[in-house]
Design a protein around this nucleic acid. Structure first.
Lengths: 349, 349
DNA sequence: ACTGTTTACGTAAACGATTACAAAAAACGG
DNA sequence: CCGTTTTTTGTAATCGTTTACGTAAACAGT
């Protein structure tokens, strides 16, 4: 019992006019009589007319759709970015189609190829951690398909991108610890495959340097695989080997939480004897006890900014064609219990 | 410098054949000469040909796209459902376009209308908490557009749906508490607007009844707005008023965690003097200390099941046309520290 | 009344891919 | 070598909208 959808032609025939007239009436063009327009619009409503978007898009060469390629989706920060993208796209009447690559390079390339097939007007891409070859991005450029990179930074390619100020964020975090009177500040990082991690590390070093604290390579630990358990182990080892360490900056909240667990286990009181700061402001960080001081990244804002940038490039390709702007969004330090010793304004989120 | 995309025609002209031949060659039809096919495929690759999907879809009346309508996206459980949907859709070569309603009824209706406009082959819908009027769902049925409801149950409408066994999950949770020797078991619930909450409540009552524990309405608290803080307050009040309460089943992990905080504050040791079980298995629940026993819902599996069901209905409309199956997925009790007193196998996830 | 200008609508050609049907070419059998 | 079958390719219509262009009618101005 498949019903056929009503077409322009159906409406036209019922009223004894041509599809052209109906089309014009429904899109509120001027060159149409007031009464005919009324009649047509009424009938269209009655017949539940919806334009066939494939036909429309084929004809107009516009899709009002943007493709989003991301490595993961079950991830708080990424979900909030997606939310921003969906929100902003909705405002501009765009649809969003999403492809998850699971950090697999081939799936990333595949997704981009599929999207390029005239299905979307532009692409938002967050490259996977393992992406080393950027020919697919270059391809987008040479094919003239509008796109914007976000979150993951790729200095390798010249392209419009929206990223977050990891360097400053990390620096703020560590400076905050220093201001709170902590001196021997350790750092647990990941494998540094992405630029963000490297920048956070640099921020850590810069903060130390700025305050005249000599950097000690023994205080920096690299983790292959990030998890709370791994971080806990690493911190236990670290604190046993160097008991003088009195604070830790974790490259993610997961690491920071593991570190807190380790410190507690060793009888260190947080924040009195041991200060901890994380990065990303996961929901979890405000729930653990003591609550975790962290650096917040504006996920939703990043999604919105990237989308806005993309839509500009889609709708005004000439104006923006040759320029590749980089937008850097500010990070924000949220001071909570895990690091707060002196009188500092607590920023609840 | 907008380059035109290569079309069938372009390839055809270069080789002195017709678009029809090229089309056949690229789609590996039998009725084509081996050498011409080779030549065409080679040239197509070289010219970076991708079929214009709008044209293709218009012609074939198929979109290979499904529309997903959800109330939220920054939500662990929902994100894992989405992941399942994207995964399964990818397997079947479908694209997924997502619309977030923010629990606003008008946006839900809007989204469905937009998707019905010949843009998608089918729709996956998770209704918002405030949806009372289901005429938009009825509309889908009468227009013959394939769709599947998921997660939120609506007994109001007859429709294919995939849900989770909240009743059994809650029952398992409470029975587990009873088996652990807890007797005076409280329950904090939400405003019961959705069926899941009601079913979990029923599960709670059934478990008590089954084990001959009289139900006490004073032990059940309803919260307007769910948050850890609210739950903590409520639990504090509850335990002060009824000190005999020795366990609590929270309708979500958030509530359970608030309850744990309250119990700790009152000097109750968990799980020795006070047992807690939550619902949903948020990441958070395995991180808090003590870790929280909870009921896991198979998010990814739900997404996959719903998608599979939808694609079946899309591709075999006649076979499935009139039947409205309800798939109920099993929930699973994850026993962790917050409730474990006797020897029970601990199930780590 | 005769031009010139609006206004309102019809005509028909796109957009790019697919496919029923036809036709040409090749293969085959006697 | 001719008729028949099979294989390969061309022809042209189609999917549903949009839009440049044309035209008839209405209207205005002199």
């Amino acid at each position: 019992m498949k019903k056929k959808r009503t077409r322009l032609k159906d409406i036209a025939e019922k009223l004894g006019v041509t599809p052209a007239t109906v089309s014009r009436a429904l899109r509120n063009r001027i060159e149409i009589g007031a009464e005919t327009r009324e009649k047509i619009q009424a009938l269209a409503r009655e017949m539940h007319y919806h334009p066939n978007l494939n036909a429309s898009h084929l004809r107009t060469q516009r899709n009002f759709t943007i493709g989003v390629v991301v490595p993961r989706i079950v991830h708080e920060y990424m979900a909030s970015i997606l939310r921003g993208i969906l929100e902003e796209a909705h405002v501009h009447n765009y649809q969003v189609i999403i492809s998850v690559t699971d950090h697999l390079y081939e799936r990333e390339v595949m997704a981009i190829e599929t999207f390029s097939a005239g299905f979307v007007d532009g692409i938002l891409l967050c490259v996977s951690n393992h992406t080393r070859d950027f020919s697919h991005v270059e391809q987008l450029k040479s094919e003239g398909i509008p796109f914007v990179l976000f979150d993951k930074d790729i200095s390798k390619v010249e392209a419009p991108r929206v990223i977050v100020d990891d360097y400053k964020g990390a620096m703020m975090a560590v400076e905050h610890l220093i201001e709170q009177g902590f001196v021997h500040i350790a750092h647990i990082q990941d494998n540094l495959v992405n630029h963000s991690s490297q920048k956070r590390m640099k921020g850590y070093y810069s903060a130390l340097k700025k305050h005249g604290i000599p950097k000690n390579p023994d205080f920096v630990v690299q983790l292959d695989h990030i998890s709370i358990a791994q971080s806990k182990e690493a911190t236990l080892a670290l604190l046993r080997a160097y008991p003088s360490i009195d604070a830790l900056f974790g490259i993610t909240d997961e690491i920071a939480i593991g570190a807190m667990q380790a410190a507690s286990e060793l009888g260190r009181s947080i924040p009195r004897e041991f200060g901890v700061v994380g990065f990303s402001n996961w929901q979890i960080s405000s729930v653990v006890s003591p609550s975790l001081t962290t650096v917040a990244q504006p996920g939703s804002e990043m999604g919105k900014t990237a989308t806005r940038l993309l839509i500009q490039r889609i709708e005004h390709p000439d104006t923006y064609g040759d320029r590749f702007p980089t937008k850097i969004l500010k990070t924000k330090l949220l001071v909570r219990e895990s690091s707060f010793r002196e009188k500092v304004v607590i920023c609840q989120e």
